[in-house]
């Protein structure tokens, strides 16, 4: 019902973090221009993968909730929220399904980032001149 609130909140936070990281990377790049030649994937790009998964997944999940009549386009937006007895169900769902959704997406992204980092290290060892 309201499980999608958790990944959407995470997507907002990670989007803000990505913006901050990207501006830091651009500043660092401008200072080291002409010196750094390594072809590592910037962390902001890696964060972009997580953002795409979170925003895209949440959008499709919101559609599924609309399909099942759990989200409505008028206040209070969640059909369960109109009934005070169901409010606790909303929070329970956010704490179980919502948190699990965010955790699985983040874990998969983490695994992808770890694998990419390992590949970059391997590449660097094979061709130290690239750095």
């Amino acid at each position: 019902m309201a499980c999608v609130v958790v990944p959407v909140t995470q997507a907002v936070v990670t989007t803000l973090i990505r913006k901050a990281v990207k501006s830091k990377e651009e500043k660092a790049k401008a200072q080291k221009i002409g010196i750094e030649t390594n072809n590592k994937i910037p962390f902001s790009k890696k964060l972009g993968w997580l953002n795409n998964m979170l925003w895209g997944g949440s959008a499709l999940l919101i559609f599924e909730h609309i399909w099942h009549g759990e989200i409505i386009p008028w206040y209070p937006f969640l059909t369960g929220a109109s009934n005070p007895a169901e409010v606790s169900t909303i929070f329970t769902e956010m704490a179980t399904a919502g948190v699990l959704m965010s955790a699985i997406v983040t874990a998969v992204w983490g695994a992808i980032v770890l694998a990419t980092n390992a590949m970059e290290k391997k590449e660097l060892k094979a061709d130290p001149a690239a750095n």
């Binding site: 499980c3 999608v4 990944p7 993968w49 795409n52 998964m53 979170l54 925003w55 895209g56 997944g57 949440s58 959008a59 499709l60 999940l61 599924e64 399904a97 699990l100 959704m101 955790a103 699985i104 997406v105 998969v108």
Partner: peptide, 13 residues
């Protein structure tokens, strides 16, 4: 990535 995100969320469901 959009589809993977959705698929993982439905996996949690």
């Amino acid at each position: 990535l959009i589809y993977w995100g959705a698929a993982l969320m439905w996996l949690a469901d």
